[in-house]
Design a protein around this nucleic acid. Structure first.
Length: 813
RNA sequence: GCCGAAGUGGCGGAAAGGCAGACGCGCUACGUUCAGGGCGUAGUGGGCUUACGCCCGUGGGGGUUCAAAUCCCCCCUUCGGCACCA
């Protein structure tokens, strides 16, 4: 038996053994309570880098911990395998996306296995395989039949580089593509949408979720709920009124103009002939603007008069109608009332076009002077007829009530969230199972004909055009309804659809009567713990919540939320920068694994920083962990000679016993809270203490055995290979990973004695070890007698004394 | 502009309102028949002091408290989200 720690040797050995024994195979008929721990599955980029390890190792430790705690744990892994990079490789290098993806999966699977995670590989899923995407298509059809999927002509975000449209969530706030940072342009196209906006209100409810506050806030902001009033302004001399949306009906007496978005359908109707040329020119100019230009808040407001007027329904005044591109068609009604005195955008606009700026909400101390800037806060209403003197809050309610009674106003709620655009003009995705028939129109592919397979012989053109469009065998088909010649939809689905339900597939990965076995779904779902990067806050996480709710309404699932607890891991950096191939600063984990071991890698990634924060990779830092693991190894192999060691007294032994329990509790609590760096620090302290004890004392064998056993059990989730090896070497039966996690005795966690901190006026002056049972009176007597303290006491007296039991005493005089 | 998070040694970072700097990296000294990215012991916030010790110190400034890294107010910086959303 060698006594030198050789991580590579033992890691390979145990990985093989665990696989052979199916140690981590998950059984559905296990009677223990279930726990579903999930991490966001990786995209098949081809290389498992240190960022993957960072995301995957800690939740594996958590899953292992829950196994040891007696749960039947499902902690599966799979691959998010559709997506544009595969297609770009096809265009540039002529490698078929399927080949490239599957090769990458082989590599990644091999690399993943080196981590020693508890994955049950029989449950692996790959989203680009027909056995998976058949059900992606099937789910699309269910949504379609339920009216939750529809096709519409709409201006869409177009990425010229990716050659496809994007969902709003996939356009960054600077107007660039989420994947390639290319500025996004707009294109009017027939597109497929999912009605996520219908779920806006329910998606705002996070009551049952243990999620980071920041993710909830991001989703909340993204959904953008806004309560207001829709008001109909009758056209002067016209028939149809113009509807606007406002959150400030209390300012309606200050309306001096009305603005339509350039794309608003009524623009042409309200434009008078004498203004038509100018309006058309303006609309064309607006259309040419890129999103980035148009979204800039810095830009000067522009607009053009249409020649028509509307009547303010409250005071009967005529106000001019403008077209201006600071109003967006996609929000509210695409039209706003202009209240320059109380809205900064309207103020800018009115200044530019010399429109009056009447004050109707008086700022504090207002004397009737002109405003230098819009007063957007609340105030007392003036120049507002019968409503004068009310506060703007009261006025808002009173005016709204009046308008509702008189029938031209209606309370409404508006959301920023738009329907999810899921069409992608790309090959490497799940084809949308729709056929267009000259006779029947849009016809869903019957379920019996699923999957609609991607053609293998696709041609990848350097122009980036979708190969499906030019693949006659794919494109041309027969209408499922009337059997006349028809054409297939050539767009594929956003890959975020694949990831909106993958967590359901793991429960029955090869089930072929549906996307999932309903019984197994009931057993395992929802996911108890989900981890991944925060970058998916308003994409994947929002989509998956929507999917869950939609499937619930279809009767397919019986829960409201997919992920009960969410923990975000931070990003691992190199020299304060994101790792990327283009920067050339990617840390390759394989090198460290072969030199220091997967266990060291796992432990270091957990130790280097708070997991939720992320931080810089340090090639130096990992050595500290490797040293520690070696010390653990040496501790187990220590000779245990009794020779020249002293016999420990009872209190020394008690100290060790207490530390065992304290450390056990701390490790359990810290791991549960993902305070992994602190958890490992306490394990190191424990190791250091044991080493010191062992060196100086002849510790009774049973106690020593217990101390070391506990160390291995506490270490097992973090360093599974080392723990298994040492467990075996100590003579314990295989496997440590089936052994219960140690419990602790609360009475042993509390000390009998503690170091009382003695402060005078809040400053540390002395310390003394006292029993925990000491009373305040005893403390007072004790401290006044301390020679270090006496000089600080006036006439040897203590005026006031604060005693915090078990901690400190503060003397104030 | 709005919303949110965060600022602690040379570095990563610890601290239920109660000893600031746990644990680790790095560094220093000493020891070690240590060839192979060693190992052990001690030290390591700043200043003053021969010493016992004392003073200062958690981005800056106020405040609450017996006691503040922690709570409150103002400001600065960094990061993230949203941004003409009516």
């Amino acid at each position: 038996m060698t006594s030198k720690y050789n991580p590579q040797e033992i890691e390979i050995k145990w990985q093989a053994r665990w696989a052979e024994d199916h140690l981590y195979e998950v059984r559905d008929d296990d009677p223990r309570p279930k726990f579903y721990a999930l991490t966001m599955f990786p995209y098949t980029s081809g290389d498992l880098h240190v960022g993957h390890w960072y995301a995957l190792a800690p939740i594996d430790a958590y899953a292992r911990y829950m196994r040891m705690k007696g749960y039947n744990v499902l902690h599966p892994i799979g691959f998010d395998a559709f997506g544009l990079p595969a297609e770009n490789v096809a265009i540039k290098q002529g490698i078929h996306p399927f080949i490239w993806t599957m090769n990458n999966i082989d590599t990644m699977r091999r690399q993943l296995k080196k981590m020693g995670n508890v994955y049950d590989w029989s449950r692996e899923i790959i989203t680009c395989l027909p056995e998976y995407y058949k059900w992606t298509q099937w789910l699309f059809l269910q949504l379609y039949h339920a009216g939750l999927a529809y096709r519409a002509l709409a201006p869409a975000n177009w990425c010229p580089h990716c050659q496809t449209v994007l969902a709003n969530e996939q356009v960054m706030s600077d107007g660039t593509c989420e994947r390639c940072q290319t500025p996004v342009t707009r294109r009017l196209l027939e597109q497929w949408f999912l009605r996520i906006a219908r779920y806006a209100e329910e998606l705002l409810n996070f009551d049952s979720l243990d999620w980071p506050e920041r993710v909830k806030i991001m989703q909340h902001n993204w959904i953008g709920r806004s309560e207001g009033v829709e008001i109909a302004f009758p056209l002067a001399g016209g028939e149809e009124p113009i509807s606007i949306f406002t959150t400030r009906p209390d300012t309606i007496y200050g309306v001096t103009f009305l603005v339509l978005a350039p794309e608003h359908p009524l623009v042409s109707q309200v434009t008078t002939n004498s203004h038509r040329q100018a309006v058309n020119a303006y609309i064309e100019a607006a259309a040419r603007q890129s999103d980035i230009q148009r979204l800039s808040t810095e830009r000067e407001k522009t607009g053009v008069f249409t020649g028509s007027y509307v009547i303010n329904p409250l005071n009967g005044k005529q106000v001019p109608i403008f077209v201006a591109d600071y109003v967006l068609l996609s929000y509210g009604t695409g039209a706003v009332m202009g209240v320059p005195a109380h809205d900064s955008r309207d103020f800018d606009f009115a200044k530019k076009y010399d429109i009056p700026i009447p004050v109707v909400i008086a700022p504090p101390g207002w004397q009737g002077e002109e405003l230098a800037a819009a007063h957007v806060e609340s105030g007392i209403m003036v120049n507002s007829g019968q409503f004068n003197g009310l506060s703007s809050e009261e006025g808002l309610k009173a005016i709204t009530d009046l308008m509702e009674v008189q029938g031209y106003g209606k309370r409404t709620v508006t959301y920023r969230l738009r329907d999810w655009l899921i069409s992608r003009q790309r090959y490497w995705g799940a084809p949308i199972p729709i056929v267009y028939c000259p006779q029947c129109g849009t016809v869903p592919v019957p379920e019996s004909q699923l999957p609609v397979l991607l053609p293998e012989d696709a041609e990848f053109r350097p122009t980036g055009e979708s190969p499906l469009k030019y693949n006659a065998a794919f494109l041309n088909t027969i209408c499922p309804r009337c059997h006349s010649p028809a054409q297939r939809e050539t767009d594929t689905m956003d890959t975020f659809i694949c990831s909106s339900w993958y967590f359901l597939r793991y429960v029955s990965p090869h089930y072929n009567a549906g996307p999932f076995d309903p019984e197994k779904l009931r057993l395992w779902l929802p996911v108890d713990l989900y981890t991944g990067g925060v970058e998916h806050a308003t994409m994947h996480l929002l989509y998956a919540r929507f999917f869950t709710k939609a499937l619930r309404d279809l009767g397919l699932v019986n829960f409201d939320e997919p992920f009960l607890r969410l923990v975000n891991n931070g990003t691992i950096l190199a020299d304060h920068q994101k790792m990327s191939k283009s920067r050339g600063n990617v840390i390759n984990p394989d090198e460290y694994v072969s030199r220091l071991g997967a266990d060291a890698m796992r432990a270091y990634l957990m130790f280097m920083a708070p997991w939720e924060q992320g931080g810089d990779w340090s090639a130096q830092g990992i050595n500290g962990i490797a040293r520690w693991l070696k010390r653990v190894w040496d501790l187990v192999h220590s000779e245990r000679e009794r020779g020249h060691k002293s016999v420990p007294n009872d209190s020394t032994l008690m100290e060790l016993r207490r530390l065992i329990h304290k450390t056990t509790k701390k490790v359990a609590k810290d791991l549960e809270a993902f305070h992994l760096n602190v958890m490992l620090a306490s394990l190191m302290e424990y190791t250091n203490f044991l080493a010191k004890m062992e060196k100086s004392y002849a510790i009774p064998e049973p106690l020593w055995q217990e101390a070391v056993e506990k160390l291995l059990l506490l270490l097992a989730p973090t360093a599974p290979h080392l723990a298994e090896e040492l467990w075996q070497r100590m003579g314990h039966p295989y496997s440590i990973h089936n052994h219960p996690f140690p419990s602790w005795n609360e009475a042993m966690v509390t000390e009998e004695e503690f170091t009382l901190i003695i402060q005078v006026n809040g400053k540390l002056r002395d310390k003394v070890v006292v029993p925990v049972t000491i009373t305040k009176e005893e403390v007072q007597a004790l401290v006044s007698g301390r020679p270090r303290i006496q000089p600080y006491l006036k006439n040897g007296r203590v005026d006031r004394l604060f005693y915090i039991p078990g901690r400190l005493v503060n003397i104030v005089n």
